[in-house]
Each structure stands twice: as structure tokens, then as C-alpha cells.
């Protein structure tokens, strides 16, 4: 089963069956993106394509605008007062910065996972059904089916199937994060944005979540911010290296993961991936 290059509908099997692939077709096109808070530019002139079905890792030191960049992709940055975004982000032929788009619908198609697991203070089941109901799914059986599928996709089903009506906050950190991923997947998004999804977890939970992310490859377009270079190298197909230049974040190098890590063109990248800078 392959992913069509066009934007027409395509079918994927159950996560455990489907075949992983990665086609270099831009899913998101970012052109000359700049972000400023209250007039202070934090990220300047970033142009970058995010490829469909691939995992793109954003690496670089803290404070160089990676998270701001990520939040601009689903318009979450607009929530922060005084934040301004300039440039273009093309998604599905629309410019999500300039066109009058429905951000709710956009966010349904571009899911986001946060650094700190944030399951709602509701039952496990309701954490998944609430967003579905919000997007118009009312049928009981369909809801149950989707909940089960999403939990199976993230490998949580066997752990929680007996306590779906228990509080989601009673889960462990790793389980909470996988529930959050399931909550994003249940809406069947096309793109998943992940903001250091493993950094608040212990090493074992982190490993479980990481292998889950790797399995998303080919089925979802994933953009992941991480400070863990080894992790980026393990899971990502593409890597983008951000760096601070005169207190303004900027994109230094973008390319296939192998290239960025093994044969970087920019000396800054080389120093960073070798652990000599940042």
C-alpha cells in the first residue's frame, strides 16, 4: 500500500499492518517565516518543506525558536498576546497565516503533542470521545470503535481496556503521553506536531513513546522538536538545525537525517551534532 502523491483520499490499514514509507512531497511549505514577540524577533526568515509521511526533527539549543516555530504551524501561537507571525505557511493550497481559515478545522487536521502530558481531568474514554463529539461524531458504536482503534494504535489498549471509565490522571506519565497521542490520532489528523514529547518522561516510558513515534512514520507527517540528538537520529527522516544568530533564531541547515548528522555542510551543525557547541 502506498501513499498517493496527490491530496486525494488514501487509505491506511491498521497501524501494525501498514507499510512504512516516506515520499518527498511537501505537505507543509514554509516560506520566509518570521516570529516576533512584542516587537522582538525570535525566529527570522525560515523557509522549509515538511514532507508527507516523513518524520522531521527540529534540533538546536534552547531558546532558538523551535517551539515557536512548531506552534505557528497550527496557529496556536496566535493565542499568545503580542506574538506576530509573518511569512507564509502553505497547507493544502491555503496560506494558513494570511487566508481566513477556520483554525478549529485546521487543528483537527494538524494535531499537537505537548512536552508535558496534558490529558484532561476526565475519564480515559471521555478524553478520546470529547474531541470526536466536538467534531460531530455522535454514533455510540462508531465512538467505541474509534476509541479502541486509537488506543490500540498507541499500544495502550491492553493496559487500560478494563478501566476506560477511570480518571486519565491516574495513569503513569508515559501512559498519559500515549493517551495524548491517541487523543490526537483519534481525530485522524494528517500532521502531528510534537514538542519534546519524551523529555518529561522517565527513560523506559520515553523509549516506549519513541518507538510509537517511529511507527507513525509513513502514516502521518510528523514534526518533532527534540533536544535528544540520539533520539532525533533514531526516529527522524529529515532534520532541521536551528541556531541563534545575534539573539535571533534562524534555520542553519535542513536535509536528510543522515546528511545532517553525518555530513553536515555547515560547520555550526558539525560542532553541534558532535557536541562541541550549544
Amino acid at each position: 500500500m502506498t501513499i498517493n502523491n496527490s491530496t486525494t483520499a488514501y487509505t491506511l490499514g491498521n497501524m501494525t499492518l501498514g507499510q512504512a514509507c516516506c515520499t518527498p512531497v511537501p505537505h507543509l511549505q514554509i516560506k520566509k517565516l518570521s516570529i516576533a514577540y512584542a516587537g522582538n524577533t525570535v525566529l527570522d526568515d525560515v523557509s522549509l518543506d515538511i514532507y508527507k509521511g516523513c518524520i522531521t526533527a527540529l534540533i538546536g539549543p534552547s531558546g532558538c525558536g523551535k517551539t515557536s516555530f512548531l506552534s505557528s504551524l497550527n496557529c496556536l501561537l496566535a493565542l499568545i498576546p503580542q506574538a506576530s507571525v509573518t511569512g507564509h505557511i502553505y497547507f493544502d493550497r491555503d496560506d494558513i497565516i494570511h487566508d481566513a481559515i477556520d483554525t478549529m478545522r485546521l487543528r483537527r487536521r494538524i494535531g499537537m503533542i505537548f512536552q508535558k502530558p496534558n490529558p484532561f481531568p476526565l475519564s480515559i474514554r471521555r478524553n478520546l470521545t470529547l474531541p470526536l463529539r466536538e467534531h460531530g461524531v455522535r454514533n455510540r458504536y462508531l465512538l467505541a470503535e474509534k476509541v479502541e482503534q486509537a488506543l490500540k494504535d498507541v499500544g495502550l489498549w491492553d493496559e487500560v481496556k478494563d478501566r476506560l471509565d477511570g480518571s486519565a490522571l491516574a495513569l503513569s506519565g508515559g501512559q498519559q503521553q500515549r493517551l495524548c497521542i491517541a487523543r490526537a490520532l483519534v481525530l485522524e489528523p494528517e500532521i502531528l506536531l510534537m514538542d519534546e514529547p519524551c523529555s518529561a518522561l522517565d527513560p523506559i516510558a520515553s523509549g516506549v513513546v519513541e518507538s510509537l513515534i517511529k511507527r507513525l512514520q509513513g502514516r502521518y507527517t510528523v514534526v518533532i522538536v527534540t533536544h535528544n540528538l540520539a533520539q532525533a537520529r533514531r526516529v527522524a527522516n529529515y532534520a532541521a538545525f536551528f541556531w541563534m544568530k545575534e539573539r535571533v533564531g534562524t534555520l542553519i541547515e535542513f536535509g536528510r537525517c543522515v546528511n545532517v548528522f553525518e555530513h553536515p555542510r555547515n560547520p555550526l551543525t558539525l560542532a553541534y551534532v558532535r557536541g562541541q557547541a550549544g
Binding site: N74, L76, L79, T103, M104, R105, L106, R107, R108, G111, M112, F114, K116, N118, P119, F120, P121, L130, P131, E134, H135, C180, R183, A184, L187
Partner: peptide, 18 residues
């Protein structure tokens, strides 16, 4: 209230009212 829930809900495309 923790901002995580607020952002989480919005990132799922839920309305503020919901």
C-alpha cells in the same frame, strides 16, 4: 488551571466554549 489543558483542547480543534 494548568495551561496544558487549555492548549491541549485548542490543539484538538475544540472551541473555547467546549
Amino acid at each position: 488551571i494548568d495551561h496544558g489543558w487549555r492548549h491541549g483542547a485548542l490543539a484538538l480543534g475544540m472551541s473555547r466554549s467546549t
